[in-house]
Structures are given as structure tokens and as C-alpha cells.
Design a protein around this nucleic acid. Structure first.
Lengths: 215, 215
DNA sequence: TAGATTGTTAATCGATTAACAATC
DNA sequence: TAGATTGTTAATCGATTAACAATC
């Protein structure tokens, strides 16, 4: 079967669709047209139909889309019907926040292990998961069939840890460190660069507030 | 003077340029050509020159760009030469992580106040800033000339708090809550949707790993 | 001056939107 | 069947890349 490449622009929108459809479903809406959805989400109906059609026909002419079905299908496309096993590197504030924020768990993202170099943190439990020393990383990853490495460590340590993760077979890294990782191209990296995001906001404050201000 | 609108695509790239230029500067590099930078950053030299030229000529033919100058200029464009005053709403794990992660401070982002509904947290100090009760939000914002509201609270509370922030004059929200905010169009919202990011990663794992797998 | 590299225009590519025929 | 709304093709728009003249 033809494997038409789907653009990252489309993929970036899927979680948002998923979110809105989840809310509609929970609110008891059974069906929705691209037109209605476009008004709620503030995008064009055309884009919605194009996006969904990348994955085959989810709708029905004259009817629209079944909310629950569409929700489930997008969930599947996003791989949320499968379990993912994660290790979290870095049990500092951010690491703990990620671990706790994790009602991700109900979406199939399970933190198997937490690691840190800081001896004071080792043995401590975050969300009932003990913090382990970095030395155990490799053996742990291999034993537990880990999918995803989460980097919640300072940028100084990130390159080294990423390398270790890749070496023991991890193909996906969720990177909160303040740098770009240099990994083989079969390794996926999804970055969350908080300061980039804040700078973008800062730019727009400057611009929109007082137009000519950066001179 | 003509105010040509700069696309968000360009703006999204500025923090990354800023990051790399900072590193080059710290590493002692004085000048760099778009060609050299393109190799380091893995983008085209053409895009680099186009991006910079949105803001006027930062380079010099036959020479390239002065790293320090370019770094400073992009910093200014991003508004990093000005101080920003923030209030953080939500002193849970994520809120604390954000507050502590804040070597943002050296970039001019100053957390003036931290707020929470949880009575147990009130009075507690995060980074030496006391957590205040939500009742004090409005008066605090007005007193301290606050620019940016940071929402590190559950989505259930987000809409309401956003409304309160807008009402007392805040025009920029850095939103970590798991929902889109509905605000007047003169209010800027920069979202950090962690779960959207993780889902994107999940999609790509499914796709790249085993091509035909979502059926 | 000659060589290098920008600034900028033109060409290409991709993504979004519009339109409409297919069909439920 | 008639009305509604999708799936899909065509048109538009914007962003990226290529090319090259300007100039340091």
C-alpha cells in the first residue's frame, strides 16, 4: 500500500484535535461536522477535512463525523492505544514535575525508572518510584523494555546521557534540556525548550504592544 | 517606516539562533558566515540570511556576521534587554520547577509573585518568594507592574484564572495548562502543552519504527 | 583589485484554502 | 428523493531555497 508521507504540520495538529474531541465526547456530543468543529477550534473546515483524510475516510457524507469513533481513531494514529515505557533522567524539580504531571499514565505512558546523579536523591521515591543511581541506567533500560528516555537534566549533562541512552537501544528522547541533541538519524527527539517558548512570548510582547520598539 | 509583518515561522527560529550564537560567543568565535552557521545548525544558509534580513542588515559582504553583535541584536529583537515581571499561578510541582528553572532571571524574566489556592502552600517559600493566596492576585498584579502571567495549574482552573489576569490588565500569558485559553485578541498566549508534545513523539515512534502499524 | 559573502530578487516547493463532484 | 456534508481536486498563498548582483 502507498505510504504517503504525512507532514509534521499535520501531526502537530493531531493532539489538539484529540483534545477537543475528548472534550466533546465527554460532553455527550455524538456527531460533529467539519464546519462545527472548525468554529470551536478556530481553524478552517477545509483544513480539518484535509487533515483527517490523510489517514483515510473517518466521516460520512451528509452526516459528518462520529465523535467517539474519530476520537478513538486519532488516539490510535497517535499511538495511544499502546503502552510506552519511559525512563526519566533527572529527579530535580522539573523531573519531579514531569513524573507527577503524569496523568500521562492513563494515556499509556508509564515511567518505569527514575535516575539521578545526585546521591541525596537516590532512594527517594517520586510517585512511588525510587530514584536510582545513573550507574544502573543501562541494565535497567535493557531489562524493562524501555521506549522513551526523558531528559530533565542540565544541558551540560544532556549530550552524554543522550549518548548512553542511544547506545543501549533507545530510539526516542523527550528532551527538556536546553540544547539540541546530536543523535543518529534513526533516533527521534522531541524537544521542549521552555526558554525558547518564553522568548517567543517576549518577542510578541515587544512587537504587539509597542510596534516600533526594538530599534 | 514600513512595518512588514514578520512570520511566526521566523520568530520561532530566533531563540535557536540566539542559543547557538551564545555558545559561539562563549566559545570565543568572533565572526561566522551564514554558510558555517548553516552547517552547525543544520539549516540552509539561505534561510539564515533571509531570517536575519527581516530585521535589517546584520552582516557585511565578504566578511560574514560578527557573532557578538548578532547575538546582542537578536537578544534585543527578542526583547531580552528589557525586564519582564511575572506572576506564577500554581506552586505545585510544575510551578516550582518553573520557578527554579528560572535562570530565566538572567535573561530579565523576574518572578515577582507566586500564588496558589492550596492553603498548605501559602507562606511557603519557593526560591525565596513566598506563596500568596489567590485573593491577593489582583492587587499584587496592579502594584508590581506585572507583564506576564504564568499558568501552572490544572485545566479546570485555567479559564477562570486567565480571565482574572486579563481583567487586571495582563496582556501575556505563558500557559502550561492542558487547554486552549479563550482570551481577547489583544492578549498574547504562548502555550506549552506537554502532553501534545509527548503525543507527537508517540506518533513518530509508531510511524518510524514500524511503518504500517496504525491500521 | 580580487575574493568572499552578504542582501535581495526570482524560482520552487509545500501547505492552506476554496470549490465542487461524489455519496450518504 | 432532496439536503447535507464529506472526500478530493484545483487554486492560492506563503515559506523555503536557489541564484546572483551588490559591496565590503
Amino acid at each position: 500500500m502507498e505510504e504517503k508521507e504525512i507532514s509534521q504540520a499535520v501531526i502537530s495538529r493531531l493532539p489538539r484535535y484529540f483534545r477537543y474531541l475528548g472534550e466533546l465526547k465527554d460532553g455527550g456530543t455524538e456527531r460533529i461536522s467539519s464546519q462545527e468543529l472548525s468554529e470551536i477550534m478556530k481553524v478552517t473546515a477545509s483544513q480539518i477535512r484535509q487533515d483527517f483524510n490523510n489517514f483515510g475516510g473517518f466521516g460520512q457524507q451528509g452526516y459528518g463525523y462520529n465523535v467517539e469513533f474519530l476520537y478513538t481513531e486519532i488516539g490510535k494514529i497517535l499511538g495511544l492505544h499502546k503502552k510506552h515505557h519511559l525512563v526519566l533522567i533527572g529527579a530535580g524539580n522539573l523531573g519531579q514535575a514531569i513524573a507527577n504531571y503524569m496523568n500521562f499514565e492513563k494515556r499509556g505512558f508509564i515511567i518505569n525508572g527514575i535516575f539521578d546523579i545526585n546521591k541525596d536523591l537516590i532512594g527517594k521515591r517520586v510517585r512511588d518510584i525510587p530514584v536510582r543511581p545513573m550507574e544502573e541506567l543501562e541494565s535497567f533500560v535493557k531489562e524493562h523494555n524501555v521506549d522513551i528516555g526523558v531528559l530533565a537534566i542540565p544541558k551540560e549533562a544532556a549530550a552524554d546521557v543522550a549518548k548512553r541512552l542511544v547506545k543501549c537501544g533507545i530510539h526516542a528522547i523527550w528532551n527538556f534540556a536546553h540544547m539540541d541533541l546530536n543523535v543518529p538519524k534513526d533516533v527521534l527527539v522531541e524537544n521542549v525548550h521552555l526558554s525558547d517558548s518564553l522568548m517567543k512570548l517576549s518577542y510578541n510582547i515587544n512587537r504587539c504592544g509597542k510596534p516600533e520598539d526594538h530599534k
